[in-house]
Simulated scan of single mutants.
Amino acid sequence: MTSHPADADLLAHGGLTVRGRIRDASNAALFCTVVHDGREASCVYKPVAGERPLWDFPDGTLAAREAAAYEVSEATGWGLVPPTVLRDGPHGEGMVQLWIDAAPEAELLALVDGEEPGPGWKAIGFADVGEDRTALLVHADDERLRRLAVLDAVINNADRKGGHLLPTADGRLYGIDHGVAFHTDDKLRTLLWGWAGEPLPQECLGVLKGLQDALRDGGALAARLADLITPAEQQALRARVDGLLASGVHPAPAGDWPAIPWPPV
């Protein structure tokens, strides 16, 4: 389910008005309204000028990688990333993304006692919960999360935290904050390891085959990514898709880097 084209048009061409700052963001993130052709929506604007340099992501910008993640998500047909554009704004070029009202009652993560997850849950690992106790951190065995796990493996997302999962009241699930993705080295860090080593569903294999075609030279997705990520990152992206198709399984942690982001939520 891709996003509605009118949403991207609104974000790309509407007038942006800054309403406030999102305080818990690690880089400048501004809450805005955008108005165009009689439509109005809330959105997030992250100007490039407000980005803190990252030593391990020296090329490109967080904003461009966020826009690239949206393009890849749209190419899958899953619509897992809110409509996102790269455009000029009140503080210069930046990423503008549709605001998503999450449904906090939707339970996707939990801490449980015991060594194994219960029915409908997948184990992530053990977490220290204080007083010399540990609990098992689990995520829901949910088709939407499984699709997002595949997308994260494709874009090499280095920061899939629980707070970046936005389930909505209408049953959709969105992932946000993809500024540290598309690296040429393997940097996958995620909470969604529950399917590690398991065979990819046929649906996912079909989507990956479609991405493979779209990423070929001259493909529609390749053309859209050309202005957002470097040629080396595009080549690594194609290699990850090829590798997933060749293995036919969800990736597993390699063991030579932290596999879960910190803090996890």
Rank of each mutant, 00 (worst) to 15 (best):
D256P: 08
W78E: 01
P167A: 04
A223L: 11
D159N: 03
T33Y: 03
A123Q: 08
T17Y: 15
E116F: 02
G79H: 07
T184R: 13
H250K: 10
A41S: 12
V150I: 11
Q202M: 13
R172V: 00
P201F: 06
D227E: 07
D9N: 07
T84D: 07
H36V: 08
E74L: 06
R146M: 11
R224V: 00
L108P: 11
E198G: 14
N27W: 04
G206Y: 12
K187T: 01
W262K: 03
A222D: 05
P90W: 13
T33L: 07
D142S: 04
E93F: 03
T230Q: 12
V265R: 01
P251N: 09
V241Q: 00
R39V: 09
G163P: 08
P253E: 05
P231S: 09
P251S: 10
A196G: 13
L211E: 00
A6L: 12
D177T: 03
I22E: 15
A140F: 14
R146D: 06
P253A: 07
E71C: 02
E115G: 10
A49K: 05
R21L: 15
P251K: 10
A254Q: 14
N157R: 09
W262F: 11
V138Y: 08
E116N: 10
V72P: 02
L86R: 01
Q212W: 01
R52F: 13
A8E: 09
L225R: 07
A239T: 04
G79V: 09
D213T: 11
A102T: 05
E115I: 05
L225A: 03
T168M: 03
A41E: 11
K187R: 11
F182E: 00
L80I: 02
I176G: 13
W257N: 12
I260A: 01
L228G: 03
A239G: 06
V34H: 10
G20S: 08
W195F: 09
A28V: 15
T61G: 01
E66K: 00
C32W: 07
L166H: 10
K46G: 09
L221R: 03
A254N: 14
L211H: 00
C32N: 07
K161I: 08
H36Y: 14
D101A: 08
L237N: 04
A29H: 04
P58H: 10
D152E: 00
A220L: 05
E203W: 14
W257S: 15
T184D: 05
L191I: 14
T190M: 02
D24I: 13
A158H: 01
Y70Q: 02
